[in-house]
Nucleic acid binder design. Structure first.
Lengths: 247, 247
DNA sequence: CAATCCTATTGATCCTAATCAAGGTCCCTT
DNA sequence: AAGGGACCTTGATTAGGATCAATAGGATTG
């Protein structure tokens, strides 16, 4: 199936610029980035990188959603990363992948050949500084996620996941900041949600039904959620109540 | 209580050099590091940084063990980081702490005042490159930890924790690589282990007793563990069996 | 349009780990 | 040496989520 490759303008010349990696790049540095970049698209369900694969590139998600996950020998599976547009995938300095990267929806990524990208890192300090910031942000997110996995109830996990998705939903930002009812797209299947949360898909389904019964959320089809009162949802997450709407 | 501040030689002039952060530092750069560094010691049980505190420094653990953890309003607690000597604590570019940092044993850290350290990062690219590598390593570790929290059984969690501690135990390295019986110090209380693993302390105690009953481990006192056959322990972790002894 | 497949929902039962509770061990203090 | 306190172990019971199973909705295909 052929899909058009995104125009350069889709990501403002440099695809990782939307996370401001290249905000301070000199023209000649941008040129070097351009020279080593190419686009790839994957269909929903395809595996982009297998754990253990040799890493040929690092990449930035341009559109679509991908997941990072690990699978145990007996099939138990845990999602360990959710990559949305603008997220950075891959590890400068590592030869092989530690996790599977799977396209959940159709995905386009902007790749940079790894070796030249690493060379470029050495000569453009502000890029590695920005990557460090991004890595530390991801580390903070991973640590929040660990609290969720280790200590939250099934109900709290579901409520937390919905707020996480709502906060990263560009289209919902406006309604969120005004305290309006919120409609958000649910990009994950029940199974993917279960893998995210360390639950089974049956438990996910039951908890969603329960939140629905109690009016905390409403479903529109299976893949759209309406949140009439965001604070009420936040109260179900188990997180500190203050400041929840901010950040 | 007064403890002697470690000599400079304890950490080879630059305390983060043992993780090779400064391997490529010029003499004048090392001087700048020296100028903004100071040592602090904490007793077991003391909180080094409270979540939300303004961050005055970043630091490197010189000796002892500290934990990063989060607590929910009702007291549920999850450890999200275990800091051993040479680990880096803190976040350049962030004003306030997201997690509690607590000394588990007596701890000495080598601090760098944050602002000047951040300035130094900008002018010494190889330091931020090294910090990036360390952050990515920690991210990988966090993701392994997420699999443990989300999908492993209590027994697998305990076995995994013991292997993690064994692998980071300098004194045990030799015996480990030769396939010898291994004695390791257990630096954590049952409660701290429970907070690490997302379990209760009773479950931790029961699972340790069970592994002991079945001869996978032996206890020497409460805080030393003997592992007669490391592979047998690995078989209990749920991780892929191949390559387990390496890395 | 029926057949099939994939995803989701709901019910019944089981099991793991949490909770509640009682002792036990070791160390420190006096 | 006795007392107290921190830490650990073990037992009994409960509960939350997993597992097994049946059904339903919606989209795609022939």
């Amino acid at each position: 199936m052929n899909r058009p490759v995104p125009e350069l303008s889709d990501c403002n010349d440099c695809p990782i610029r939307h996370r401001a990696v290249c905000a301070r790049c000199e023209p000649n540095e941008l040129e070097r980035l351009e020279a080593i970049k190419y686009y790839k698209t994957y269909e929903a369900g395809q595996t982009i990188i297998w754990s253990g694969d040799r890493l040929e590139f690092v990449a930035s998600v341009v559109s679509g959603i991908a997941t990072l996950s690990q699978t145990m020998e007996d099939g138990r599976k845990q999602m360990v990363g959710l990559m949305l547009p603008s997220d950075f995938v891959g590890r400068p300095g590592r030869e092989s992948a530690s996790f599977d990267v799977v396209a959940v929806s159709d995905v386009t990524i902007c790749c940079f050949r790894r070796k030249p990208f690493e060379d470029l890192l050495i000569s453009t300090p502000h890029v590695s500084q920005r990557l460090l910031e991004m890595a530390l942000d991801e580390l903070d997110a991973a640590r929040e996620w660990m609290l969720l996995l280790g200590r939250k109830t099934a109900r709290e996990k579901i409520a937390s996941l919905i707020t996480i998705i709502a906060r990263r939903d560009e289209k919902a930002k406006d309604a969120l900041s005004r305290g309006r009812p919120l409609t958000i797209a649910l990009p994950l299947t029940r199974e993917a949600m279960a893998d995210y949360l360390g639950l089974t898909l049956e438990t996910v389904s039951r908890q969603i039904s329960s939140l629905k019964r109690e009016g905390v959320i409403t479903l529109e089809g299976k893949r759209y959620i309406v949140i009439p009162d965001f604070q009420k949802l936040l109260d179900e997450t188990g997180d500190d109540s203050d400041g929840g709407l901010l950040v």
